[in-house]
Amino acid sequence: DEIHIHFNGVTIEFRGLTEEAKKALEEAIKRGASEEELKELARRLIK
């Protein structure tokens, strides 16, 4: 299970995320999180 985020022309790929983690990332994107914020969020979620 993986998710691809297209962000300002950059694709960020995450693997092994739970549904909750995906929802958290989607919410962050909707509120306009920066690419760095998304990566940091993903790091926290994957652990």
Results as ranks from 00 to 15, higher is better:
E36I: 08
E36K: 08
D1W: 14
L45C: 04
I29D: 01
R44F: 10
I5F: 12
R44D: 14
H4G: 06
D1H: 14
E36P: 05
K22S: 04
E36S: 09
I12F: 06
I46G: 06
R31Q: 14
R43S: 09
A28P: 00
N8S: 06
G32L: 01
F7V: 13
R43G: 03
H6Y: 05
K22P: 01
E35Q: 08
I3D: 05
E35L: 15
E40G: 01
K22F: 10
E26S: 11
E35F: 14
E26N: 09
I3A: 07
G9S: 04
I46S: 07
K47P: 14
L41P: 00
K39P: 00
K30Y: 10
D1T: 13
I12R: 00
V10M: 12
E19N: 09
A33M: 10
G9N: 07
R31C: 03
K47G: 15
G9Q: 04
G32C: 01
G32S: 02
T18P: 11
K39R: 12
E2W: 14
A21Q: 09
R31T: 06
I3T: 06
I3P: 06
E2M: 14
H6K: 08
L17K: 01
R15S: 14
I5A: 06
E37S: 03
T18A: 08
I46V: 05
E13F: 13
R44Y: 12
I12Q: 04
A33R: 01
H4A: 07
K47C: 06
T18G: 12
K47W: 15
A24Y: 12
A21V: 14
G16Y: 07
N8V: 05
F14G: 02
N8M: 08
V10L: 09
H6I: 14
K23N: 11
D1P: 13
E13C: 09
K39M: 15
A28I: 03
N8T: 05
G16I: 03
E2S: 15
K47A: 15
R31Y: 13
R15Y: 10
I46N: 14
A42M: 15
A28N: 00
A33D: 11
E37D: 06
K47D: 15
K47N: 15
I5Y: 06
E40T: 04
E36H: 08
K22T: 07
E36F: 07
R31V: 04
N8L: 08
E35H: 10
N8Y: 02
L41D: 00
K47L: 15
F14N: 01
A33N: 01
L25V: 07
I3S: 06
E19I: 11
T18R: 08
T11C: 14
F7D: 04
I3Q: 07
T11F: 11
K23M: 11
E27I: 09
L25K: 00
K39H: 09
A21F: 09
L45A: 02
T18H: 06
